[in-house]
Design a binder for these strands. Structure first.
Length: 821
RNA sequence: GCGCCAGUGGCGGAAUUGGUAGACGCGCUAGAUUUAGGUUCUAGUGUCUUUGGCGUGGGGGUUCAAGUCCCUCCUGGCGCACCA
């Protein structure tokens, strides 16, 4: 072996070998336990960034670890290739999105290979390939036939200057990012998939996801947002354009007697009707209608309202309730109208203060200090000022009030979800064409299976910012599959979340051309471990769960959930902020690989923090990782030298001296800790710490002439174990050094518990919870002896002076706490 | 605004089930090696008014015992449905 560590040489040798031998290709093997490890595939932006390096190193460490445990490991890689950036590049640089994307994929693939990730490249998928999206189109036509896909109008951001739809990201301070023109909301017809039909199952199956981070499960639960309450109908005093009632949903029917006003969304049909004959209302709606579709913006806007002049009748008291327009009421949630109870809802309270509306208390809470002059009382409590319901608690009053409403046909219990149906239409070019033909007689007709895929024309030029296929007659003009009449193709494309919702299953059978999925999908899925950024905790992961259930109900797959375990990695930060081009704080992984080699980069990115936490970039940390590898190389080199002139004999466990026993103890402690940290805890940073402790012990160990043979035997075990433990993290380095030591680089060291036996044990002795002494005792010492020994300690006596002992608490193998006063 | 998460030495972090706070690394200090810088090696390194106190963002609580559990406040991060 070489005396110096040359990362570039050993890495390129091994990578060439892995490639030529197709070392990580895998296939269905019934007898072997399978392990499907998947890291979220990247958008091919052109350059790998540190977030990718982190994501894919975590995946590769897990894949390599499980391969070393003898499992049949599938670790695929592909490209989430459709999306907005390709169009922006096309507009800016006049390059076709398909070509730009292909070049980016080539570049990033080379970078991934240079990092030594153990992918089965024979399964590579790019979602922009017709072979992939044809099955997505086919699946959508199945959803149309089942009534799971439907068309309705819905709002988009519209730039009146560019005459184009903008993504939320393209709206900057209410204006178009290209021309600053104030953005308008525009209602256009779009396709939706009924995810709300699966809301209950998506919610209840969260309970099956035991190996998902609790925070992700909680976020999904809140996003679906099931709430139980009542639908209450308020009769209008005078009908408006055929409407006789205003219906609201509330989770607090117990507060019905405290209603001060009803709030209407500005897009509510009654609001629009009233505005026809009332210029002030029309003005208000025009001025304060949401210009944006982003909920965060709507929720942070100033809450504004205007009285409409009409009123409704309280269903139980018969009293008059005024109707207001309120810009914070969302048309898309519930019925687009709310009942407002200022005394018991903080937002309503603030609105009432602002517009001088009555605040009527109907709930009392004896055990809470509150002041309705300062804030709303939002806790549940006992009803007051509520006629027959006074004195009832929440549950009693809910039953009673709903019953009273039912008798008057003015309400009923209702379950409401926050979740909305999934809008999948995009008015953009670089996406999978929606497989629909619009016929003036037959309506929206799904493209028949024999005509799929509807191929996206790739040889296009962007003359403006709009999608080129929207004006491409050769694409648009066709005939109706039903009646044969001239008809037009849909020119919208799918949301790119569609492609990323089922790619994990397609990796099982990427070349299958008889259908969307083959039976291989049931062998490989569910994914055993899915790894990706926490930013995907809700949308992507919810859509993928939904798609899995849709595919199951189509008979394509036979499990309920796509991802067994989920690991959500944190961000890579520099100077406290997420690395991004716009902030100019990026570190180019390629430069680091060129300078230090892939193993150093992999080691550093796994060293500092557990994967879930955000990682603060540190140049010194990379240096440190490289120094560790160089230093240990020297150690292995000199050990390799001594092996040349000495026999390697077996360890004689009965004949070891204390130094030798102590090294073995560290060796096996590190094996145990690193194995558990990688497999169960996924705390790679502590696994690495434990390997470093082993290496420190190896460096401290001197070979002595008198016990040379056994010294070399235990040292060999320690060095080989350290290298084997490092295999998943620094595969080139470990593999190279293990073969230099004539050890085959494909096994994991076996932990031996007998190395950990102790002749004595230590207890900490506390007085009133503070450590005052440490004592050594025999193993299995009895309680009385231990207590006596603890009390005898000089320092313990000192702190007990003038006190009497009340209680002694013994924590087995750990400590003795003497309680005294 | 709403939902979720995090906060521990000079810095990144460790403490796995309520049981000895600071593992491992970075940095720093001193010494050795070196023509010098760098490298490498050895020792030390929470803090203070040091026979002992104090210390896990602030305040309060539960407990024999709290970084860990509860309440509350502050700060930072992620998401909010058309970035992916």
């Amino acid at each position: 072996m070489k005396e110096q560590y040359h990362a570039q040489t050993i890495e390129s040798e091994l990578q060439a070998y892995w490639q030529s031998s197709q070392a990580f290709r895998c296939e269905h093997k019934e007898a072997q336990e399978k392990y499907y490890c998947l890291a979220m595939f990247p958008y091919p932006s052109g350059q790998l960034h540190m977030g990718h390096v982190r994501n894919y190193t975590i995946g590769d460490v897990l894949a390599r670890y499980h391969r070393l445990q003898g499992k049949n490991v599938l670790q695929p890689m592909g490209w989430d290739a459709f999306g907005l950036p390709a169009e922006n590049a096309a507009i800016k640089n006049n390059v076709a999105p398909a070509k730009w994307t292909r070049l980016n994929i080539e570049n990033m693939k080379a970078q991934l290979q240079r990092l030594g990730f153990s992918y089965d490249w024979s399964r590579e998928i790019a979602t922009c390939e017709p072979d992939y999206y044809r099955w997505e189109q086919w699946f959508f036509t199945r959803l149309m036939e089942k009534g799971m896909a439907y068309k309705k109008t819905s709002a988009v951001n519209w730039c009146p200057n560019d005459m184009t739809v903008l993504a939320n990201e393209q709206v900057v301070d209410g204006g178009c990012w290209r021309c600053d023109t104030p953005v308008e909301r525009k209602e256009i017809p779009q396709w939706f998939i009924r995810i709300t039909d699966y809301a209950d199952e998506l919610l209840s199956d969260l309970d099956k996801l035991d190996d998902w981070p609790e925070q992700v499960v909680t976020m999904q639960r809140n996003w679906i947002g099931k709430s139980e309450g009542a639908e209450i109908s308020f009769q209008l005093k005078q009908a408006v354009a055929g409407h006789e009632n205003i219906s609201v949903f509330t989770t607090r029917p117990d507060t019905l007697f405290g209603v001060s006003y009803l709030g209407l969304a500005l897009e509510h049909p009654i609001a629009l009707e009233l505005a026809e004959n009332n210029p002030e209302l029309a003005d208000f709606i025009k001025k304060y209608s949401n210009k944006t579709t982003a909920e965060a913006d709507i929720a942070t806007m100033e809450k504004l309202g205007m009285a409409t002049g009409i009123s409704v009748i309280h269903p139980l008291t018969g009293g008059d309730i005024p109707v207001w327009l309120a810009n914070f009421v969302l048309m898309g949630y519930g019925s687009g109208a709310v009942m407002s109870v200022p005394a018991h809802d903080q937002r309503d309270w603030e609105f009432a203060q602002k517009y001088n509306l009555p605040i009527k208390q109907v709930i009392d809470c004896k055990d809470i200090d509150y002041d309705l002059k300062k804030a709303a009382l939002t806790n549940k409590g006992t009803l007051v000022n509520s006629d027959a319901f006074d004195g009832m608690d929440f549950t009693q009053s809910l039953e009673g009030i709903v019953k009273a409403l039912e008798e008057k046909k003015a309400g009923r219990k209702q379950v409401n979800f926050r979740l909305r149906d999934w809008g999948v239409s995009r008015q953009r070019y670089w996406g999978a064409p929606i497989p629909v033909i619009n016929c003036s007689d037959c309506g929206a007709v799904p493209v028949p299976e024999k005509d799929l895929p509807v191929v996206l024309p790739v040889d296009v030029e962007f003359s403006g910012v709009a999608s080129p296929i929207k004006s491409m007659d050769s694409f648009i003009k066709t005939s109706c599959p039903c009646c044969g009449k001239d008809a037009e193709r849909e020119t919208d494309t799918f949301d790119t979340f569609m492609e990323s919702s089922w790619y994990y299953a397609r990796f099982a059978c990427p070349d299958f051309d008889k259908g969307m999925l083959s039976t291989e999908a049931d062998y490989w899925t569910p994914v055993d471990h899915y790894i990706g950024g926490i930013e995907h905790a809700i949308l992507h992961l919810l859509y993928a769960r939904f798609f899995h259930k849709l595919m199951r109900d189509e008979g394509l797959i036979h499990s309920d959930e796509p991802f067994q375990k989920l690991l959500t990695q944190g961000m890579v930060l520099k100077d406290g902020a997420k690395m991004s081009k716009s902030k100019g704080n990026t570190i180019d992984p390629q430069e680091l690989i060129d300078r230090y080699g892939a193993d150093t980069v992999r080691l550093f990115i796994m060293s500092d923090v557990p994967p879930e936490q955000s990682l603060e970039w540190s140049d010194a940390g990379v240096e440190g990782a490289n120094r560790f590898l160089k230093k240990f190389w020297q150690t292995v080199f000199s050990f390799h030298q001594s092996l040349q002139s000495n026999n390697l004999v077996a360890i004689e466990t009965e004949n070891l001296n204390d130094r030798q026993k102590s090294l073995r103890k560290q060796t096996h402690a590190s094996i145990k800790k690193a194995s558990d940290d990688i497999e169960r805890r996924h705390t790679f940073n502590t696994a690495i710490s434990s390997i470093r402790e082993l290496v420190n012990a190896i460096n401290r160990f001197n070979i002595e002439e008198s016990t040379k043979e056994q010294d070399i035997a235990v040292l060999n075990e320690a060095v080989v174990s350290a290298l084997q433990l490092m295999q998943p993290i620094t595969p080139h380095y470990s593999s190279h050094l293990l073969s230099a030591l004539n050890v085959s680089a494909n096994s994991w060291p076996v932990y031996d518990d007998s190395t950990q036996t102790e002749s004595s044990q230590e207890f900490a002795v506390q007085v009133n919870g503070k450590v005052r002494a440490k004592i050594q005792t025999a193993i299995g010492v009895d309680k009385e002896t231990l207590e006596k020994l603890a009390l005898e300690q000089d320092n313990v006596q000192k702190y007990l002076e003038g006190l009497s002992v009340r209680k002694v608490i013994i924590v087995p193998n750990k400590l003795v706490n003497i309680v005294a006063n």
